[in-house]
Design a protein around this nucleic acid. Structure first.
Lengths: 92, 92, 92, 92
DNA sequence: ACTGAAGGCTGCCCGC
DNA sequence: GCGGGCAGCCTTCAGT
């Protein structure tokens, strides 16, 4: 085992984890600032979370549709198959 | 309610969250790199976690675990313990 | 494709998943009970997890951790280690 | 610390965890059975997961609407407030 | 200080 | 045997 290599890897990880923690701390400060300006932090968190979800949802739906299309295989060209796919797409 | 102020706050938060996600991704890459160099990632994570706690806390935790385990009596007297021992023997 | 057969299979699965969820809920309750009786839940979970692994695996894991930690050299030589030591001193 | 009490608690937990593992094993068997009957296990898992999600979604949306209504407070009776609530409800 | 909830992370299981 | 996907665990956060 190469000790130096391991040591370097661990140190890089710890450095990055510190940066991550610092950023998390900055985020907390912003929420505190928002609160002191009269905003509802709980709602703000929900808004941020929803916006994140919405972005993910698109990619997600596409994956689902691909899965269904693949599962249907040749059926995808039949009226019934297309109806199923259309239904899935409407969910977007 | 000041809409512009709210918008600015949300944007600052989202910017920071993106940075945080990027760093998390970097960390994952380093573990992947470590793995490809033959290191045991699971162990590395444990080592990193241990180093985060100070030595005092670590010692206390160990003591507590020992206390609890002692209170349970020897492993061999429990059904699950016996199953584990049997399994270990089969592996030999 | 036999629709009824599929339906039956799905229903059996969902029935079992419900049972599983109920049991998980029971387990949570026991931990809550333990906590209200003054036990340290976090430690209990660690003890339970350790008992799941057989002794051999546990010993190997410990050895590896020691090996990795030794490779990193003394904690005191790293920035994070120094921070931890400082923090520990402040707590005294 | 009451050793017997701790021991009893741990044993109850371990008993339940075993039951849970057994059920998980049963579920696996059903999927295997389905597969041998020509069903696409991957799709089945998605179907089961989606049905679970759908159930959660309703409760989830309600929570969100309640949160917004509470945040709007008296505003909920104004046209603008009602528009916001309606928008949230449409998401159902 | 405790509780309940939300998000991120780890370990597991499957398919390749 | 490996990597991706998914469920469960742990930690953190707002509220009481």
């Amino acid at each position: 085992m190469n000790n130096n290599q391991l040591k370097t890897l661990i140190e890089r990880i710890e450095r990055l984890e510190k940066e991550k923690a610092d950023i998390a701390s900055d985020i907390k400060e912003i929420y505190a600032e928002a609160k002191s300006n009269g905003f509802d932090v709980k709602i703000m968190r929900k808004v941020v979370a929803n916006r994140k979800k919405d972005e993910k949802a698109l990619a997600e739906e596409k994956t689902l549709i691909n899965t269904y299309e693949a599962a249907l295989g040749p059926l995808a060209t039949t009226p019934l198959g297309q109806a199923a796919i259309k239904k899935a797409k409407n969910a977007e």
